[in-house]
Design a binder for these strands. Structure first.
Lengths: 278, 278
DNA sequence: GCTTGTCCTTGACGAAGATCAAAAATTTTG
DNA sequence: CAAAATTTTTGATCTTCGTCAAGGACAAGC
């Protein structure tokens, strides 16, 4: 037996593989932690609302996230319990069923949120982008697994700390409630997609959806980055990789989209919107 | 042209039919309102917490609903903006896309919550039972249609009034948030069912799910009422009526369930749970 | 009580998408 | 840069579930 830590890795197929890793590598590979800033975010304590502190001031997504709706004192309290954390691509931020010590606000990168059935079938319940919040349900254990599709940065808050804070700051709680309500609404839309749409319509609605999500971040564009694989898309839409590939190839052949290295370019948005129509 | 009100009824097929109804009948048929109590609920204003007023005191579901977590003054404020309302079976409580002047707490009966695609395909996003809350999203317009499957009673609250109230009463807001979080979690479970399960597994998970929901209300039992039609079940699970019927018949033939007039009786819960396994 | 309508069931057949297999393209790693 | 691994694409075949059709059960209404 080598030196190191024995871990059991669960494959996409549900198969369990035993591996032995040196302790150092364990952290980088399994937990993917490549950088940690356990000090308080800056935004120095008694600066007034408009002049935000350095790190939060530089934050690209403060207008998109939970932070948007806060006034100075709430913002400050939030900072006090938060810290930034970075993860490498392919790292697992947390796993379904494990304890949930933190809730997080994504500041950069993209995540895949998925649920695994005992036999290895997988359902991707969403993709998280900058401004999204993980842990809205505030349950003590995670309801799905979160994997980094790209390098990811998040603001983490202790879950009990965050829970106490929202109980004392109604505006913050309202922001969380609105976010949860929005997520619920998206989940119900996705139920329609999964239950009642053809493969072609599923792909169209996925592309239109990703486009509008990136529009919030980068402004509207026909270029839609797709940091996830075809397999991930299939597992999100209830299709196989092959069907996703075939449909996207067909759409490209029909000049509805162009497939580019990091995603797609939408040539015929009207056609896609018609297919995706709610 | 007869006397009355012309209405356009949208069929399940998406077809639009014009009808003319006498005004009186319009309310009963289209809006299904059969009784309204616009006065305040009783629970007379200055009675203390344990001795609840008459109507709310008689309420079967106060322990299941939003009301559970409230203290005396919050409860009283909630009563002030609420009223009870009853609907006949098959009545439409509200329609997707229409203004949402109220949020409601269901006190008895069962509802079907559904979304209609432009071409008539339908996705049932949920069934609401006593204790469930409609309007968690607190959006100004309804995101789905709610139809009564049985006679239904609800406590209605003005949406703006309720929204203001939760902003002032953090405990109430927290109750709403917890409910929304729970709904979100259920919606994500349903995504797994819709995306990655076979017809047989879908039926099993539906039956197990209905059983556990009724268990909260009536206590655990192998008798599971099914107030919805096979078509409704199909539209909930992304299946056709025929497939639902075939699968249920097969399960009955295999002695996993017994089909009874108002629902099913589960003979082999273990088998169903295995099929539905998360 | 008979008609009407709705709901449920069953059978025959077909199609959308899954599965299996393998090659091509792309990315990662040493 | 070459080898290895992963991802994507394409083709052939199969299966599950949808579609179409029709009969039966049941409740509602005249």
């Amino acid at each position: 037996m080598q030196d190191g830590v024995r871990i059991e890795r669960i494959q996409a197929t549900g198969e369990r593989v035993l591996e032995t890793l040196p302790e150092k590598v364990l952290f980088d590979t399994v937990f993917g932690r490549i950088e940690s800033t356990p000090r308080n975010l800056v935004c120095s304590s008694n600066k007034p609302a408009p002049g935000l502190g350095l790190e939060c001031g530089d934050c690209d997504i403060k207008g998109l996230s939970i932070c948007e709706s806060l006034d100075a004192d709430e913002f400050e309290l939030l900072e006090r319990i938060g810290r930034t954390q970075a993860f490498a691509a392919k790292a697992t931020l947390f796993e379904q069923g494990r304890d949930a010590p933190f809730v997080s606000n994504i500041t950069s990168g993209a995540l895949r949120l998925s649920k695994l059935l005992p036999d290895g079938r997988r359902q991707v319940v969403g993709f998280a982008l900058p401004g999204d919040f993980l842990g809205l349900a505030m349950q003590p254990t995670h309801m799905f697994t979160a994997d980094a599709l790209t390098p990811v940065k998040v603001c983490q808050f202790s879950r009990p700390g965050f829970s106490d804070l929202i109980d004392r700051k109604p505006k913050l709680m309202r922001a969380v409630l609105n976010m949860a309500a929005h997520e619920l609404s998206l989940a119900q839309d996705q139920m329609v997609v999964l239950g009642r749409r053809t493969a072609e319509e599923k792909i169209a609605s996925f592309l239109i959806g990703m486009r509008s999500r990136y529009a919030r971040i980068h402004g509207p564009s026909v270029h839609v980055p797709l940091p996830m694989t075809r397999l991930d898309i299939g597992d999100y839409l209830g299709l196989t990789v092959e069907t996703v590939s075939r449909m996207m190839t067909r759409m490209a052949r029909e000049k509805t989209i162009v497939i580019v290295p990091d995603g797609v370019r939408l040539l015929d948005v009207a056609r896609l919107e018609q297919l995706a129509e709610m």
